[in-house]
Structures are given as structure tokens and as C-alpha cells.
Amino acid sequence: MKLPDLDYIRPGTLQETIDLLVAYEGEAKLVAGGQSLMPMLAFRLLAPKILIDISRLPGLNAIDIGPDGVRLGALTTWRDIERHAALKTAHPLLAAAIAHVAHYQIRNRGTVGGSLAHSDPASEFPALVTTCDADVVVHGAGGERVVKGSEFVLGAMTTSLEPDEMITGIRFPAWPAARRWGFEEFARRRGDFAMAAAVVFYDLDAGGRAADPHIGIIGEPERAVRLAAVEDLLTGRVIDRDVIAEARAIGEQAAQTSDDIHTPAKYRKALIGTMIERALMTAAGLELRPVAA
């Protein structure tokens, strides 16, 4: 499990990086935190000609909070998010979900851009991008373009990035202070990849009914998805235990799961239902477990 021979370069600017990507025609890999890439190289699952180290590119690790929302530079680490005091109110869902990403050592190095570009179907960050309708800012030979979050991840470890492109930032829409939200994840051990997770949020209309609910799940084999059936169910409803029970059942039914060595498909479906239920209970401020008589 030693890396094959490869070249390494650390460009100083974004333009140089793009030029290198163009020059290597898909045979280069960008490395920032390296938390997924380096094990893949060691296992020799990948054999790029060159690693382009973008970890010191200037201006790509800022967290900007403004009226339009939260902008994360691609090099923002999980630790940066975790320790950012203002994010806890500016985007509480983001801060809460990131606490489930891996372990300390990995959170110190892993970046949001790397996670999104890698797009493991069990990762939290692509699920957030999808569920929150975030915009992905991409630079390439043709300049800047913005990809809608729901269109960025195409499948397991497959994105709409072109070989000459890199992610430079992710923009999360503004988060109303009164928004209700919940995040629930289930993994074998703390920090492991999620077997299932639910990302939920909705606003309340004047009558206390759910408006514009977003229900995203981790647990499908290709990528995190939003469950329109559950969102339709919740729209305009007061979120109580009965509605949540219904949402759980519909979510369980809607989720498309498959077997892996730790997770039979049927169990994973049920787990997704449970995660939706628990995230919605949190969002609605309901006690998860009724106290025994």
C-alpha cells in the first residue's frame, strides 16, 4: 500500500492550477486535504500522472456570512466550520451536520471542496449541498460557472466537473432565523460513513404550518437525494407526531436502497425512515422517546 511513482506540483495561483489541469488533460488530480485521495492512491485505485497541490492557493478558505447566505471557500476545512462561532446561528444545520464528519484528525485536514469533488454517496457535505439548494462555484479554462447543488453530483464519485475545472466555493442560501431543522445520522461507530442520514428543514407559515420543506437523505447507493414525496406530504401541514409517522412511512417507501456488506437494503430502508422521523421530531421540537409510564 505504497503510492505509485507520480509527480507533484504546488501552483501559486488559481490560473496556474487551471493551466496545469488543461495541460494534463484529465491525468492530474487536485489534492487539498488528501483525506480520501491519499488512501485511494495507496490502494492503487488511482494512478494520476501528477498531484496538483491546491492547499495553499490564496483566498479559497474563507467563510463569508452575508445577507445572501453563507459562502464557503473550497479549502474550508471541517474544523474551520466547527470552530466558526457565527455559523452556529447563520447556518445551524451546516454546523450540526459537520460534527458527524469522520474524526478529529480528518476534520483538521479534510476540505468541503474535496468532499464535494470526491462525492462519496455516504458523505454529509454533498447531502447538505443537495438538500440546501447550494450553488457550487466552479473555475475552469472557460472561466467561472455556477452549478446548482442538485445538479452537481451525478452519481457515486461522479460529478459534473470537467477535467479542466475545480471547485472554488459553495454558496448556501440565506437561513431564516426561525427555520425549523433537524439532522440525524446513523453509523456503526462515531465518525464512520453514514449508513443512513436525514437532513430536514422547513419554514413556518403564519398558521404554524410547514412551508417549503426540504427532506434530504443519505443511504441511496449513488448519491444523497431529496424525497419529493415526503416534501409534498409535509407542505402546508402542522408537523406533529402523526404527520411525522406518515413521513417516516413514505420516506421509507420512497428510498431506493441496495445491499452492502454492513447494511442489507431492507434494513437501510427502515433506517432511513427512522432518521427522517428523528430529524423531523427534532425540527418540530418534539420529544423523541416518550418516557415510559
Partner: peptide, 12 residues
Amino acid sequence: LSPSKVWSLIHE
């Protein structure tokens, strides 16, 4: 006694 096995003991 993995979560899936325990779940299965209960539900299946």
C-alpha cells in the same frame, strides 16, 4: 450483533 442483525431479530 451488528445493528442490522439486531434489527432483523426484532423485525424479521
